[in-house]
């Protein structure tokens, strides 16, 4: 509650975040495993099997292995974080997540020297996922973060939404949420977490590197080649809602120091 609001930083002090409704958050999703339409995940995700759920932790860690969700999250503090969520398609929402800091999980599995990135992988269940059967993109969906990004206190692993377990179309049972990056970095329904030395391949970057950089920080001054990123449409405003200006790092200015000395027009 309060801790989350404080963490949202100075931007939150200017305008208290009004979360979108559960209906809006769960009926406007990109989860291509279930189809490319915004309502496809809500219609199709029900078929995904999430119990039992096993997560492989491997790479440069002290405690590798296959863990059940309960084993992996045991002892971690779940808290609420109300975050702005900005899609690369220039729309946005505000989402009340429940989850734990990724840094706490990384501490638990023991990150070894030499690990510089964290790689994630989404589950693939072809028989339950029409988008996988249609091969709309290459699966499994993979994403990654630089270790300092993964360790930042704003980066969470979400397990819940609006006080209930994560709905399947929102990435049940476990997903990343990195609020200062475009939404596709916040990978859903994770089955593998690998600590690695080299920058891992990421799905949209492999599909089109010019349009989707590895970093993909929300940045109003670097346009997507096919559309502007200067403004965004806040979901839930109806047919006549006005566009809002997009903020650098989605308003989470405290992460700016992670990118000191980097040219964000090149490392977009």
């Amino acid at each position: 509650g309060l801790g989350a609001i404080a963490l949202a930083g100075p931007a939150a002090a200017q305008d208290p975040l009004e979360p979108n409704t559960l209906e809006e958050i769960t009926h406007y999703n990109n989860f291509y495993e279930f189809g490319t339409g915004k309502t496809d995940p809500a219609e199709n995700a029900d078929a995904m099997v999430i119990d039992p759920w096993s997560i492989k932790v491997d790479g440069l860690v002290d405690n590798p292995g296959d863990f059940s969700l309960a084993e992996l999250t045991d002892g971690l503090t779940i808290e609420e974080r109300i975050y702005r969520f900005r899609c690369v398609e220039a729309w946005s929402m505000v989402v009340p997540w429940q989850g734990f800091e990724l840094a706490d999980l990384l501490a638990k599995v023991g990150v070894q020297d030499g690990a510089r990135y964290v790689a994630f992988e989404t589950v693939v269940q072809p028989e339950n996922m029409p988008g996988v059967r249609n091969r709309v993109i290459d699966f499994p969906y993979v994403e990654g973060l630089r270790l300092d990004e993964a360790m930042h206190p704003l980066t969470i692993m979400a397990t819940g939404l609006y006080g209930a377990p994560l709905p399947k179309q929102s990435g049940a049972p476990l997903r990343v949420v990195v609020p200062w990056k475009y939404g596709f970095k916040s990978i859903k329904s994770i089955v593998r977490i690998s600590l690695v030395a080299e920058q891992p391949p990421t799905t949209w970057n492999m599909l089109n590197a010019r349009e989707y950089g590895f970093y993909s920080n929300v940045n109003p001054t670097v346009d997507h080649p096919r559309w502007s990123q200067a403004t965004e449409r806040r979901i839930g405003g109806g047919l006549f809602s006005s566009r809002q200006d997009t903020r650098m790092f989605n308003g989470y200015d405290e992460v700016a120091r992670l990118y000191d000395g980097m040219d964000l027009t090149k490392d977009y």
């Binding site: 979901i235 109806g238 047919l239």
Partner: peptide
Amino acid sequence: GQGKYGVEPINV
């Protein structure tokens, strides 16, 4: 805001 227009009507 009915049916498929429920969440985000402009783009739809």
